[in-house]
Each structure stands twice: as C-alpha cells, then as structure tokens.
Design a protein around this nucleic acid. Structure first.
Lengths: 358, 358
DNA sequence: AACGATCGTCGAAGCGCTTCGACCACCCGA
DNA sequence: TCGGGTGGTCGAAGCGCTTCGACGATCGTT
C-alpha cells in the first residue's frame, strides 16, 4: 500500500484501467472508440481489465474532451392538448431510440421555454434537441433556428423552412377516413374533433386533420361538417345530439379525439344509432384504444412509437453531419375493424328514402 | 484581428470572459460560485462581460472539475399501472423542482433497469436518482443501496430500510375514506380498486389503500368488501353489478381507480342508484378529476405535485450532505364535495326501515 | 536487400472549469 | 509604529478523457 490507490474508492478511471492492463491511456481510449486499429490481444486484455475493474468512462470528461455530451434534450409540450398515452409512448420511444444510439435524454418542461433551450445548448449539456407537440406559431421555433445545434420537431409549425419535422400526415389521415367512408357508400359525414381550445391555440394536428377532412369531402362531392368536442361524457353527448339533430341523415363519423372515443361508442347505441348498422365510425387514435372498444373501431392509428423513433433517427443523422432532411410525414394507415360498413339505406330510425337535411 | 478569436465562433469560454473583464479566470469562477469574496466593482464588471458575451459555463468541464454534474436521473415506472396524468404531474414537478435547485433531469425508462442505474451513476452523468412508482419487490431497490449515490423513491418497497421514500399515506387514505363514510352513518362499504394485475404485481399504493380500508372497517365495526376493477366501462359496470348484487345494502363506495371514476359516476344512476342519495362515493384521485364529475366527487386528493417537489427537496438535501431522512408520508386530505351524504334510511329502491344484510 | 507503407502503440497536449495556496494591500489594535 | 488579520485577486495544478503526432516493428514490393 504505497501510493497508487484510487482517491475515490469506487471511482475507476481510464488510468486505472491502463495501468491494470499494462498499456497507455490512449490505447484504452482507442479500444473503446475503435478509432484506431488495436491488436486483438491488446483489446482483449484491456476489455478484461475494464470488466474486472468495473470501469465506466466519466461522462463529464468525455464530453469535455470530445465536445459531445451524448445527451439530447426532449422538450415536453407547452400544454396538454395532447393525449397523454400518445405523449408517453412518444417519450418512451425517444428515450429508447436515443439509448439505441448511445445517447441519454434530458427532459425540459416547455415552460423553461426559449431560454431553457439556449441554456442547455450553449452549455453543451446536450448535443441536439427534440421538441414535442410543436404548435403552429411556436415561440420555441425561432430559437431553434439560431441555436446552432441540430433539432427535430414533432409536429409542424406554420413556417417549417429550414427545420426538420416529423409527424403523422394528419391531413392525409383526415382525407383517408373520408375516402373510406365514401367508398363504403356514405354521403353525409361528420368530424368530431378536438376540444375547441386546441383549434384556437393553433395546434397543428387538429387543424390539419380538419383540413384533410374538408378537402376530401369537397373533392368527393359529399356532405361533411366538422365540430370541436370537449372531453367529458356530457359534452360528447351534446355534440352528438347537435350533430344528428341538424343532420339526421349523417351515417359516417370520424372521431379525432382520444378522450371522446369510448364515450362516442357507448353513447351512440343509447341514442338509437347502432354501430355500424346506423352509423359507421372511424377514429384517429392509437391502435390499442381502437381495438378495445366494442365493436372494435376502424381507425387510422397514431404511430407514436414510430414517430419518436424517426425523430431520434433524424436527429442522430444530423448529429453525424448529414444534411437536414426537412419534412417527414408518416403515411396514415387505416385498419378496418368492426365499426364501419355500408350504410343501410334508411336515415334515422324511420323512413327508407334518403333524406337530406337543410 | 491578430489571434485571440474564439476557435468555435459561438462558444464563449470563461477565458474569454476573464480577458474581456480584465481579470483572472479564477476570479470569474468565484464571481459565479460566490465561494470567495469578490469586490462589488469587480463583480459588476465580470457580470457585465458575461452578459455581453453571452457566456454559459460548459457543463462537461464544470462537472469534471467540480465532480458535480448538476443533473439528476428520473426513472420512469416499470409498467403503466399508474394513472398517466398523475405520472405527468409528478414528472413535471420533479423537473420544475430540480430546475429550482439548478439541476437538470435525465429520464430513464425502467427497462434499462439496474444496469442503467449503474451506468449513469458510475459515469457521473448524474448526481442522484429519483425512482418513480416503486413496487413492493422492486429489482431496482437493491441497486440503489449499493449505488453510492443519493436516491429518493416515490412509493415504498417492501423493505425500505436505509432508503429515502416519499408517498401519499395510502393506508391512511383508505382509512380516511372509511372513517368519513362511517361518520356519515354508512354501515356497509365497498372499495372499488385498481385492476387485478396491479395487486398481483405488488404495487404498493394499491395494497396499502386496501389494507387501510380493511383496517378501518375492522376497527369501526362496519362491513366492507374490496374488489379489484379493470378500467373499461364494461368491467366497471359488471364490478358494480356484482358489488350491489351480493350486497344490495351497500351505501358507501370508495373508488381507488382513476380510469373507473367517471364510469362509476355515470353508471350508478343508470343502475338505479343515485349519488349521493342512494350511495355515497369517495374517490382517491387527483382533485381535477374529482371536481369535474357530476355530482362533484368527495375525494382524497393525490398530491402528485407535492410528492414530486418533496422528492426533489429530499434528494437535494442528501446531495448537500444532509443525513438521509427515511420515510415521508404525506397526510391524506379529504375534500367533501357533492357525492357524499348520510344514507337515506332505506336499502335498494323500496322499503324504508334500515335493513342490514348478513 | 533496401524502402516505403501500413499497423499498433505511446506520450503529451489540451478540453473549460474549480479550487488551493500564495500574495499584496490594507486596516485595526496595541 | 508594527504585526496579524482579512479582504480581494491571481496563477497553476489538476479533473478524466480524446486525439494528434511520433515511432518502432512488420510487411509486401521492386
């Protein structure tokens, strides 16, 4: 026991490993990074020492020397207009994805805002940023432009020039639902959307779905109305009453409101509209949700996991110096389940000739 | 333009600041850390230079030199038996709390498990750890013991010796609900709990609530049964049917299942049991949820924010070298709203004399 | 047989910050 | 008036890692 004991009992450094393996510190480093050729014999020996000593490279030192923290920031949504399960899946996918690329994830609440982004970026705490649930006019967007660090947005701001964005093609999703219903023979459709505040706040996905819905309705020459809808059962009920009250001959319903989905499915029968006999319903929501209603819902799934994974992949590419690809829109996939079918030719519960309201 | 331009255009270092302010690097450091006295004049000058140059200390260098990363890890739950809104509030509170102590938060998915904890701890990526939703026999707990870094658990493992844990006193909460109902005059109670899997998995809060419920029922000499309950409307309905089928004279219901809360409130009337006239209901759930049902629910709130804040406070204390306080149980607070009242002396829908079953 | 190319390894110079010891003024009390 | 504080500042030594240049040794070529 003369000298060479580690100062901190359980903090093994690369120097300890080098000494133990009888090589230079740099050699250990190269074994770890594989940036230079190392003979198999030496590599084995070093690896063995690392294992027996339980060496973990010090993150701070590594970041300092390599100018890479191997950490990315994940910025949480400003408010929770987003369906929480989707948010969690997204987050999990981002974290898992990042780990797959040997990165960790630092979370920031949106209320830290632009200043927070600057802080973590300029302090080199993180190498890049993923921003969730971007809104049409998002205060964080300009900051990202001037940040000097790669970033990926989940969602689309109004002006996405020069930014890398990923999202489900909600416009396409809205349209896809309409096409499906029209193909089945429905001629009067309705979109039951997100709570009103989500539209006024300018959350992209709500707007884009509605736009896609309307565009497809116009293109295909059918009737369609869109209504926002709050999330509690009572509001869903009254929205449905209003919908079918003003247009009793509505036979196709698109639901883009996760919280309302189950209510819609349980309320419709109690209003005398069977699914799918009297009204076909398609939801835009996660598959799990769609699969567990009764009857199971035909739906365009929200591939949260896929989006999160993509976001990370894109960010990693940018970190590696790849040119920034701009917009990644995931193709909506519609899964037909038991809630859709051709309209039984009658409207409401009596009469048999199609009646068009107003 | 001779030499002294920063190598990386927008990366300002402490050396730049020192030069700009005409002081030594160490002086700048001491201005920032206040660990030595600095004259007001100098401080002002340095601060001004920092502001004009937009200096942000490099996180890696700081961590390396000070042996403090100023980052804590937040470990997400193993599975999602936890109500997501609560989880999000918790997370937000932890992040906000940490920021308040000048720390950032690194998230880890639970599936990284013990190995992940070792990794971030030994690499000095984080200074301490907060683990969410700890289960009775949690594989992460032994690791925390040997980790050599401060940690705080949200929830209680079976053996909490030597660990710092925070949680709502769920045992007390279960008991509190019983006491309230009994004080109102109810004599046959029921607990509608979490999904069965949550109990079998050994999630502490579910068990503790049930234990508290049973203990209070026994102590107060009333009748009470506890039933697990799945989260979809259909299951809630059948659980309720079973409950009232076997014991029609049940007049007090405790609901400890966030997802079931709204269903219970809409299903009971449709089963011919008005709230609170025929049955009093108390939920153990977040206040927002309780407040927006109709009638508004009397409830023991789940103070997610408070728990998160406490967890951070405790962790910071440990980081500062304070002795580890062990168990922090938050006192359950019951808010009486419109869903509780004295039992109207009749059972079921006919008869008027109090009838006591079995 | 002599000569560039590798290949494999080492030593040393930082990365940007914190912190310790030193040092110089002062100021106060004796 | 002198000595001991003490307040304010500086210089330099790391923290643990990456990376660059150097340097033998080993090869395949002519």
């Amino acid at each position: 026991m003369t000298a060479a004991e580690p100062k901190r009992p359980d903090l093994v450094t690369i120097t300890d490993v080098a000494r133990h393996a009888g090589v230079a510190v740099s050699t250990v480093s190269y074994v770890l990074s594989a940036k230079r050729a190392i003979s198999t014999a030496t590599r084995e020996r070093v690896l063995a020492s690392i294992a027996t000593l339980g060496f973990q490279p010090n993150a701070g030192a590594r970041a300092l020397a390599s100018r890479r923290a191997n950490v990315i920031a994940l910025v949480l949504p400003l408010r929770t207009g987003m369906h929480l399960p989707v948010l969690m899946q997204l987050m999990t996918a981002v974290v898992t994805g990042a780990r797959g690329h040997d990165h960790d994830v630092l979370v920031m609440t949106a209320d830290e805002g632009p200043a927070g982004l600057r802080r973590v970026a300029h302090s080199s705490l993180v190498d890049g940023v993923v921003v969730m649930d971007v809104e049409l006019s998002d205060p964080r967007v300009p900051v990202l432009r001037e940040l000097g660090r790669p970033s990926v947005l989940i969602g689309f701001p109004a002006d996405a020039r020069g930014l890398t964005c990923v999202d489900l093609d909600f416009h396409g999703a809205g349209a896809r639902c309409v096409e499906e219903l029209v193909a089945l023979g429905h001629r009067r459709l309705a979109l039951l959307g997100a709570p009103a505040v989500v539209y006024t706040r300018g959350t992209g996905f709500a707007h884009r779905t509605r736009a896609g819905f309307r565009a497809a309705v116009a293109t295909l020459g059918v009737e369609g109305m869109a209504r926002p809808c709050e999330e509690d059962r009572e509001s869903v009920a009254s929205t449905l009453r209003e919908l079918f009250g003003s247009h009793p001959d509505t036979t196709g319903l698109v639901v883009h409101n996760e919280a309302a989905v189950e209510h819609v499915m349980t309320l419709l029968p109690s209003m005398g509209r069977r699914v799918p006999d009297d009204v076909s319903v398609i939801a835009i929501c996660p598959d799990e949700l769609a699969a567990r209603t009764r009857p199971a819902l035909s739906s365009v799934s929200i591939p949260a996991e896929e989006i999160g994974r993509q976001a990370v992949t894109l960010l990693m590419a940018k970190l590696a110096g790849a040119p920034a690809s701009d917009a990644t829109l995931l193709t909506p996939v519609l899964t037909a389940r038991a809630s859709t079918g051709p309209p039984l030719s009658r409207s409401g519960r009596e009469g048999s000739a199609p009646t068009r309201g107003s």
